[in-house]
Design a protein around this nucleic acid. Structure first.
Lengths: 110, 110
DNA sequence: TGATACTGGTTACAAATGTATACCAAAATG
DNA sequence: CATTTTGGTATACATTTGTAACCAGTATCA
């Protein structure tokens, strides 16, 4: 065995820790696909609630995954933009979309 | 925009649903790396508890991700083997290991 | 001129999920 | 004969997630 398994496992667990729950990646995907406003992102992700989106966006801002800008026109306008860091999940997301597409029958059978 | 975004999002969410919590992928990884026995898998994943491993393995058996065999020598010997389905997560795991390795500094800084 | 809906969220409570810890019987090891 | 290993289970507790209502400010519609 040439690969360092425990190093790989640690990298895998780090990534999973960073990705966290079930909403982080869909949100990253939505924002990277061009959605910018709170309700726009919310509507683009079936099943998410205001509470979870709000919570995730806050954490993602702290982790420099998104940049939050408030335009103080009246009414106020809030915009979320992806950072480079945010886009670094592209490979993982692509692989997951690929898996989901080719296993759709299996998943929906349940 | 040529890609079908809502179809991709659905595929992504299906995959996330299937992967579930934070232990499924490390377990798949461990078993695909050759670990076969309960305590062996447990020891190979830092942080996991007996309860979570037991719970996950049960679900994974139902979802045909692993094959559980009981060899009734005395003492009893239980073996978990990966199925083809299990190995289909290879691409996702590889991408996650890649991400974890290249972002280690960022993650450990927290 | 109200009534309704949309903006970006917050709050309180319930349900689900995860963690910690102890425990089990049978067999092997020291 | 005491400890360790096997493959787990049971119980209690903590954390996370989901449900639902609500908020002020503005815009839209009849």
């Amino acid at each position: 065995m040439l690969r360092n398994q425990s190093e790989e496992l640690r990298a895998l667990q780090d990534t999973l820790y960073f990705i966290g729950g079930k909403w982080r990646l869909p949100i990253i995907n939505s924002i990277c696909n061009g959605n910018r406003r709170f309700r726009e992102i919310e509507r683009s992700i079936p099943g998410i609630t205001t509470r979870m989106l709000s919570k995730e966006l806050k954490e993602m801002e702290m982790n420099k995954l998104v940049k939050r800008t408030v335009y103080d026109d009246s009414p106020v306008l809030v915009e979320y933009e992806p950072t480079e860091h945010c886009r670094s999940f592209g490979g993982i997301i692509t692989e997951m979309i690929k898996w989901g597409k080719s296993h759709r029958i299996v998943v929906t059978k349940k």
